[in-house]
């Protein structure tokens, strides 16, 4: 059963942002930062949904919510500075205002996955949209089978949420492997690509749900590896990224074949997108 936002009525004017103050700014790595927004202005969200964030006078970009959907006192976003808007957002300080529209989109199937083993595979900043799922799983641990998280990043310096990752690693009954592509001698974890680490996780492929977030190349490779391991394509979920201007299915930019990434996604069942992913430049 896909999850959709039903918690609140759509805002009357879906294109105008609300201006919300930043309450906390954290630098995660050289080019990644996290900030919290004052929650009294926030609306409920489900893990995997995104907001459109506006930097005054510069522009607006879609950013997945990286915080806890059940602790709405903080509305958290984690962003990599790659363009003018994300760079402008990266210069904000506590007290500055950010424009926000949302939440939008269909998130991760945390309800559907109840009773199943859950595998989360994140690449790079793809861990941010999956962090709400990790919070959810930790809060509702008994409702799920075995849990495994794989997280791949470029180098140890590029890892985000480092102290939390260490907490999760120490959590009983919570398998976590972190792989970097290259590391200095101080790194004692895995070095290599993230996908082969699947073989290190214990799970029952016939009773498992997988959620993948990362670059599209990684999504394709990981989904195939999961299928090879025995997961049905209907139990694999992937988060897609495309250009977005409106987030409400009106601007046309985020189309991917018949899908609008903004309203049909960003999280899609792999079985729905696997053939589309096989075409270049779709």
């Amino acid at each position: 059963m896909p999850q959709t936002l039903k918690a609140c009525a759509p805002p009357s004017y879906p294109m105008a942002p609300r201006m919300i103050p930043v309450t906390r700014f954290i630098r995660e790595s050289q080019d990644v930062f996290t900030f919290d927004l004052a929650a009294e202005h926030a609306t409920p969200f489900t893990p995997g949904q995104f907001n459109m964030l506006y930097a005054f006078g510069v522009g607006e970009i879609p950013i997945s919510i990286s915080g806890d959907s059940e602790a709405p006192e903080r509305l958290t976003h984690t962003i990599r500075a790659v363009g003018p808007v994300s760079a402008a957002l990266g210069k904000l300080q506590a007290g500055d205002q950010v424009g926000l529209r949302g939440p939008f989109g269909v998130g991760w199937p945390v309800e559907e996955a109840k009773g199943f083993d859950v595998l989360l595979i994140a690449g790079g900043i793809g861990l941010a949209p999956l962090r709400p799922v990790i919070y959810w799983l930790l809060r509702h641990r008994a409702a799920y089978g075995r849990v495994g998280v794989l997280y791949g990043a470029r180098t140890p310096d590029d890892l985000i949420f480092r102290s939390e990752v260490e907490e999760w690693r120490r959590t009983p009954d919570f398998q976590l492997r972190v792989a970097v592509e290259r590391a200095g001698p101080e790194w004692t974890g895995d070095v290599g690509y993230v996908t082969p680490l699947l073989s290190k996780l214990r799970f029952d492929a016939t009773e498992a749900v997988a959620m993948i977030c990362g670059p599209e190349v990684m999504i394709r490779a990981t989904a195939l590896a999961l299928e090879d391991a025995g997961l049905a394509d209907s139990r694999i979920f992937v988060s897609m990224e495309r250009n977005m201007k409106c987030a409400i299915g009106h601007c046309g930019h985020c189309q991917f074949g018949p899908l609008f990434i903004c309203k049909d996604g960003p999280v899609h069942r792999y079985g729905r997108v696997r053939s589309l992913l096989s075409y270049r430049e779709l």
Partner: peptide, 10 residues
């Protein structure tokens, strides 16, 4: 054809 883009000015 309905596609649009947005531009920010200040």
């Amino acid at each position: 054809c309905f596609c649009t883009s947005v531009e920010d000015v200040s």
